[in-house]
Design a protein around this nucleic acid. Structure first.
Length: 486
RNA sequence: GGCCACGUGGCGGAGUGGUGACGCAGCGGACUGCAAAUCCGUAUACCCCAGUUCGAUUCUGGGCGUGGCCUCCA
């Protein structure tokens, strides 16, 4: 059992001990839905999906609850709606749909709960009330602010003291704050915006809800404190997200939750994934290297081609989740070769993905060596090394094991393998490519006729023609197979 | 300026106080009309300095380098 996880709270790898092994809870901060999710957003989605799968394996599927929220009230959303001249609801609905399509291709399991901020406004108001009653928050100039000085342990997660942060502050402080560190729990929306996004009414620039402090909207952090309590309880096991959320988001969540709950610990383990860069540079719109999941899957913007979702996933898993990762074309190409090499190996071992085999393979356990690596703070790179070892095997049960392990890691499914098998002849993915299969096979027939006649010039000419189409041939002992050039 | 993370062979990337993971590329060989694929074999590393130690890439200190965070709204 002994799962070890690096806990940001202690900055150490710790033995994971669930509060209740019958009910393991994990909360992960999901996307703010104002634009396509970018590849940096994909990292926590994939990392925590692996952790979710591992927890389900260790504690049983029925005993793990994974909550990943959707932030659908945020000023970035408001700005986007105003910019496009459409309603806030239109922006969020469109973005959520796109998000789900994108991450489905990444092989992630749906979380057990996917709560939305706008559906929990009442809970937020209630928690803010409690914080005011307990002297942890105050109303000022239409805002409600959390009083950082009222929380003795503020800074425990990000390991900084409020004093240091005050000294280092570089931003002008709003005049209504008692302390520069105080952060917003509730802020006013203009009355003329009434009927806006929050209530789903006419198009306006700002959403709002009635509250004891007037018409307004919640600050960013309060939603996670409220929703995690609602679905997982006051104290739960794992809280995850990107390292960029450590401060201020998670720090503020902890402050809100512990103060609202009479000092109960919010989450026992805080787990954070590292940053992602693109070709050695920080990803930013101004640098022009901003890359979305959708761009990678469906366009040729990155590396001049489309990339299969399982390849994107493997690239993420090849680097340990806490390490920085550099997103490069080269890394994608290499992962492509590795992943499809494994898949070809599985088929070469005569593992068949005909419908009747589905149940048999689904019951095949993942390799223990891989599980062992994952139990060591999600050492996916070590796990992948084990996959390479498995792939050296040469009997069918090893093929089953390799498939089961890839399946466990979300890198192959029965359906994707069945599709792959149908196109066997060595093809990789045809799905997203515009390949005229009939034409390809016709040319191959012509070439083989030329080879039969020992007309090597013509045979080579046809191979060059196919090469120009992006097709690579392999002359086997029985027949000629082909695949899309990688 | 404060805080944090990271620095391994041509590239990616684990790990460890003492037998130099793993993959890709490279090189040699088998196979092949030629290729591709596949198979076998193989060289190359632990940012710098000092300390602890019988011994450090692994621990400690310093330096250098890279990246990140330093409060909603702007």
């Amino acid at each position: 059992m002994s799962l070890k996880l690096y806990n940001t709270l202690s900055r150490k790898k710790e033995l994971f001990k669930p509060i209740n092994p019958e009910k393991v809870g994990m909360y992960v901060c999901g996307p703010t839905v104002y634009d396509h999710a970018h590849i940096g957003n994909a990292r926590p989605i994939i990392v925590f999906d692996v952790l979710y799968r591992l927890l389900r394996y260790l504690y049983g599927e029925a005993h793990v609850t994974y909550v990943r929220n959707i932030t659908d009230v945020d000023d970035k959303i408001n700005a986007r709606a105003a910019q496009e001249g459409v309603s806030i609801g239109e922006i969020t609905a469109r973005t959520i749909k796109q998000f789900h399509e994108d991450i489905k291709a990444l092989g992630v399991l749906p979380p057990d709960k996917e709560p939305r901020a706008t559906e929990h406004i009442e809970g937020m108001i209630a928690m803010i009330k409690t914080l005011i009653e307990r002297g942890h928050a105050y109303e000022a100039d239409g805002h409600v602010l959390f009083s950082v000085s009222s929380d003795q342990s503020y800074g425990c997660l990000s390991n900084r003291s409020p004093d240091e942060m005050r000294a280092g502050a570089r931003v002008d402080v709003a005049s209504y704050k008692k302390d520069p560190m105080d952060f917003v729990l509730w802020k006013p929306s203009p009355q003329e915006a009434r009927g806006g996004g929050g209530a789903g009414g006419k198009q306006t620039s700002l959403p709002g809800w009635d509250s004891p402090w007037g018409y307004g909207r919640p600050g960013w952090h309060i939603e996670c404190s409220v929703m995690s309590e609602k679905y997982l309880g006051k104290t739960f096991d794992i809280h995850g997200g990107g390292a960029d959320l450590i401060f201020p988001h998670h720090e503020n969540e902890i402050a809100q939750s512990t103060c609202a709950h009479g000092n109960a610990v919010m989450a026992k383990y805080f787990v954070h994934n590292g940053y992602l860069q693109v070709e050695g540079e920080k990803m930013s719109k101004s640098l022009g290297n901003f890359i979305t999941i959708h761009d990678l899957l469906k366009t040729e913007k990155f590396g001049g081609r489309k990339w299969p979702g399982d390849v994107l996933r493997l690239v993420m898993l090849k680097t340990h989740y806490r390490q920085p990762i550099d997103w490069t074309t080269k890394a994608l190409e290499q992962a492509y070769g590795e992943l499809y090499g494994w898949k070809e190996k599985i088929l070469s071992l005569k593992v068949s993905f005909q419908e009747g085999n589905r149940d048999y393979y689904s019951g095949f356990p993942p390799a223990k060596t891989v599980i062992d690596h994952l139990k060591n703070d999600l050492n996916t790179a070590g796990a992948i090394a084990e996959l390479h070892k498995l792939a050296k095997a040469d009997d069918i049960s090893d093929g089953h094991s390799l498939f089961a392990t890839l399946n466990f890691l979300g890198l192959a499914s029965f359906d994707s393998m069945a599709r792959f098998e149908t196109y066997q002849e060595g093809t990789t993915i045809i799905d997203d490519q515009d390949i005229n299969v009939g034409r390809v096979e016709e040319l191959i027939d012509n070439r083989n006729a030329a080879r039969e006649a020992r007309d090597w010039n013509e045979a080579d000419r046809i191979r060059d023609e196919l090469d120009a189409m992006g097709i690579v041939l392999k002359d086997g002992p029985e027949r000629t197979t082909w695949e899309i050039k990688r």
